[in-house]
Amino acid sequence: MALNTPQITPTKKITVRAIGEELPRGDYQRCPQCDMLFSLPEINSHQSAYCPRCQAKIRDGRDWSLTRLAAMAFTMLLLMPFAWGEPLLHIWLLGIRIDANVMQGIWQMTKQGDAITGSMVFFCVIGAPLILVTSIAYLWFGNRLGMNLRPVLLMLERLKEWVMLDIYLVGIGVASIKVQDYAHIQAGVGLFSFVALVILTTVTLSHLNVEELWERFYPQRPATRRDEKLRVCLGCHFTGYPDQRGRCPRCHIPLRLRRRHSLQKCWAALLASIVLLLPANLLPISIIYLNGGRQEDTILSGIMSLASSNIAVAGIVFIASILVPFTKVIVMFTLLLSIHFKCQQGLRTRILLLRMVTWIGRWSMLDLFVISLTMSLINRDQILAFTMGPAAFYFGAAVILTILAVEWLDSRLLWDAHESGNARFDD
């Protein structure tokens, strides 16, 4: 018995066209964080690309023209004298008006014999932002004059995390709450300039795509075929072959399989920071003279006294001054041990922890910024005066060393310790 099946006739004509040209192939790229070699397709503007294995951002879609970056830099340069030299806060102490600005706080630190601690604050609040705007201006002028731009481009990517104007702005709020127990506070004209400078700096850093600047100024022929001998440069993120001198053909720094002496430098910085954190938390970090009496505060006791007036601000200072430094030390110690013992479990967790400490590390400088600003506000000789204690130097040095330890660690070593050939990683 035959089955009668109805015929289905399409209502619209289906047209099949042959592909007349070869589909576009992607360029081969190595991930600078996990060293995976993959094919990167062509990316349009405002599109980002991520590593298929570790999800690290390979290409950032946010990109401004150099002219727009230069305009932002010149605007920031105009704001800087007002943000640093004009009063941020006014207080009335014992019937006398006192003005506080950024430069005055750094000068008070240096004047009291601790120039190293003052230079830490100076670099993060004044030096690094000033280098940022002058570097962008150098790129703008240098591109037109045919100057060598490689050193500036190499420095810009590392400079971003040292620009800490946003953290200093939080420190202004913390210092205001600490001082309000002794005097009446009012915002100064410099505060508005400083807030504007923070906003412009944040926007500029978020749109400063150094890798795209490398592509514009020093374009290189990408690798179009897969080759395990391809290496990625950690300076400019170019994937290719080393030249005859073993250097990256684009930025001219040595092109090595792994960062040289990464573990040794990381261990040295980490152990030194552990040693410095002990006096930083045991010795007094601030000293207040009130009517001839002397009151010393460690980091913890200062947080407890701050909690009596504002528990939320005390929580912020606790996280930045105690929780973050010790968390960074514990995480980095764990990561280094996992590399030495070739741990194969929990790779995803370790990668996330490394990215976390990379982002939060700079916030530990908050305590030094609060001390710097408070020193310029309260300084009335023996009637009422505020000065920093010996722990300030140890704390600042420990924070900087932990930042350097994270920067010096080559994250690809975590993958080397893991089993080879993993296309995915999980716990």
Score class of each variant (00 low, 15 high):
3 L>Y: 05
3 L>Q: 08
3 L>D: 11
3 L>P: 01
5 T>Y: 05
5 T>V: 07
6 P>W: 14
7 Q>D: 07
7 Q>K: 10
8 I>M: 08
9 T>K: 12
10 P>Y: 07
12 K>H: 07
12 K>T: 06
12 K>Q: 05
17 R>H: 06
18 A>W: 08
20 G>I: 05
23 L>S: 07
26 G>K: 09
26 G>P: 07
31 C>K: 00
33 Q>S: 07
35 D>F: 04
39 S>G: 12
40 L>V: 09
42 E>L: 05
42 E>K: 07
42 E>C: 05
42 E>P: 05
46 H>G: 05
46 H>P: 07
47 Q>N: 05
49 A>T: 02
51 C>A: 00
52 P>A: 05
54 C>E: 00
54 C>H: 00
55 Q>T: 07
59 R>C: 05
59 R>V: 04
60 D>A: 04
61 G>V: 09
61 G>I: 09
63 D>N: 14
63 D>L: 12
64 W>Q: 07
64 W>D: 03
66 L>I: 12
68 R>W: 05
69 L>N: 04
70 A>Y: 12
71 A>V: 10
74 F>P: 06
74 F>Y: 03
75 T>G: 07
76 M>Y: 03
77 L>F: 05
80 M>L: 04
81 P>Q: 08
82 F>Y: 09
83 A>Y: 03
85 G>H: 05
85 G>Y: 04
87 P>E: 05
87 P>A: 04
88 L>G: 04
91 I>M: 03
91 I>F: 02
91 I>Q: 04
93 L>H: 00
94 L>N: 00
94 L>P: 00
94 L>Q: 00
95 G>D: 01
97 R>W: 04
98 I>S: 03
98 I>T: 02
99 D>F: 05
99 D>G: 05
100 A>R: 01
101 N>Y: 02
102 V>N: 04
103 M>N: 03
103 M>F: 04
105 G>L: 01
106 I>F: 07
106 I>G: 04
107 W>E: 15
107 W>K: 12
109 M>N: 05
109 M>Q: 06
110 T>F: 01
111 K>Y: 09
111 K>I: 02
112 Q>E: 04
114 D>F: 05
115 A>Y: 05
115 A>D: 15
116 I>V: 11
118 G>L: 01
119 S>L: 01
119 S>V: 02
119 S>D: 10
120 M>D: 02
121 V>A: 11
121 V>F: 11
122 F>E: 12
123 F>N: 04
124 C>T: 11
124 C>G: 11
125 V>D: 07
127 G>F: 01
127 G>H: 03
127 G>P: 04
129 P>C: 10
130 L>V: 14
133 V>T: 04
133 V>A: 02
135 S>K: 02
136 I>A: 06
138 Y>V: 09
141 F>L: 13
142 G>T: 07
144 R>E: 10
144 R>H: 12
146 G>D: 05
146 G>H: 07
147 M>G: 04
149 L>I: 09
150 R>E: 03
153 L>T: 14
153 L>C: 11
155 M>F: 03
157 E>M: 09
157 E>S: 15
157 E>D: 12
158 R>F: 12
158 R>D: 12
159 L>S: 03
160 K>S: 08
162 W>T: 02
163 V>A: 04
164 M>L: 03
165 L>E: 09
167 I>D: 01
167 I>C: 06
169 L>F: 11
169 L>M: 11
171 G>W: 00
172 I>Q: 07
175 A>F: 01
176 S>H: 06
178 K>L: 00
179 V>E: 00
182 Y>I: 13
183 A>P: 00
186 Q>W: 07
187 A>G: 13
190 G>P: 02
191 L>K: 02
192 F>E: 09
192 F>I: 10
194 F>E: 08
197 L>H: 05
198 V>E: 08
201 T>H: 08
206 S>G: 15
207 H>W: 15
209 N>I: 11
210 V>W: 10
211 E>Q: 13
212 E>I: 15
214 W>A: 15
214 W>H: 15
214 W>S: 15
216 R>C: 12
217 F>W: 09
218 Y>A: 10
218 Y>R: 14
220 Q>K: 14
222 P>L: 13
225 R>A: 14
226 R>Y: 14
227 D>G: 13
229 K>V: 14
229 K>R: 13
231 R>N: 11
233 C>F: 00
233 C>W: 00
235 G>Q: 02
236 C>S: 01
236 C>I: 00
239 T>K: 06
239 T>A: 12
239 T>E: 01
240 G>H: 11
241 Y>N: 14
241 Y>W: 10
241 Y>E: 13
241 Y>M: 14
242 P>Y: 14
244 Q>C: 11
244 Q>Y: 10
244 Q>P: 12
244 Q>H: 14
246 G>F: 13
247 R>I: 11
249 P>M: 14
249 P>K: 13
251 C>V: 00
252 H>S: 07
255 L>C: 08
255 L>S: 09
256 R>W: 09
256 R>H: 11
258 R>A: 07
259 R>K: 09
259 R>S: 14
260 R>A: 08
260 R>V: 08
260 R>E: 09
262 S>Y: 02
262 S>C: 10
263 L>N: 11
263 L>R: 14
266 C>K: 02
266 C>Q: 05
266 C>S: 13
267 W>Q: 14
267 W>N: 14
267 W>D: 08
268 A>T: 09
269 A>F: 04
270 L>W: 10
271 L>S: 10
271 L>K: 10
272 A>W: 02
272 A>T: 13
273 S>E: 05
273 S>A: 14
273 S>Q: 05
275 V>Y: 02
277 L>H: 01
277 L>A: 04
279 P>T: 15
280 A>I: 05
280 A>W: 04
281 N>D: 06
281 N>L: 04
283 L>Y: 04
284 P>A: 15
284 P>C: 10
286 S>F: 03
288 I>K: 00
288 I>G: 01
289 Y>W: 13
290 L>Q: 01
290 L>S: 02
291 N>H: 13
292 G>A: 13
292 G>T: 10
293 G>V: 12
293 G>R: 14
294 R>A: 06
295 Q>I: 07
296 E>T: 12
296 E>Y: 13
296 E>I: 12
297 D>G: 06
298 T>L: 12
300 L>C: 09
300 L>G: 09
301 S>Q: 09
304 M>N: 14
305 S>T: 13
310 N>V: 05
311 I>C: 14
311 I>V: 12
311 I>H: 14
314 A>M: 12
314 A>D: 00
315 G>M: 14
316 I>V: 14
317 V>T: 00
318 F>W: 10
318 F>H: 07
321 S>I: 03
324 V>K: 02
324 V>A: 08
325 P>G: 07
326 F>C: 10
326 F>R: 00
327 T>N: 07
328 K>Y: 00
329 V>M: 08
330 I>D: 01
330 I>T: 13
331 V>K: 11
333 F>M: 13
334 T>M: 15
335 L>E: 09
337 L>T: 11
338 S>W: 14
340 H>R: 12
342 K>R: 12
343 C>I: 12
343 C>H: 15
344 Q>R: 12
344 Q>K: 12
346 G>H: 14
352 L>K: 14
353 L>P: 07
355 R>Y: 15
359 W>L: 11
360 I>K: 00
362 R>Q: 04
363 W>Y: 14
364 S>Q: 00
365 M>I: 07
366 L>D: 01
366 L>H: 01
367 D>W: 00
367 D>P: 00
368 L>T: 07
369 F>R: 00
369 F>H: 05
370 V>G: 01
371 I>C: 01
373 L>E: 05
374 T>W: 02
377 L>N: 01
377 L>E: 01
381 D>R: 02
382 Q>M: 12
385 A>Q: 06
386 F>S: 00
386 F>E: 00
388 M>D: 06
389 G>R: 02
390 P>E: 08
393 F>H: 04
393 F>Y: 09
394 Y>N: 04
397 A>V: 09
399 V>G: 12
400 I>V: 10
401 L>A: 12
401 L>V: 13
403 I>P: 04
404 L>M: 13
406 V>I: 10
406 V>Q: 10
407 E>A: 12
408 W>C: 04
408 W>V: 06
408 W>G: 06
410 D>V: 00
412 R>M: 01
414 L>I: 07
416 D>S: 09
417 A>I: 09
421 G>A: 15
421 G>H: 05
422 N>Y: 11
424 R>N: 15
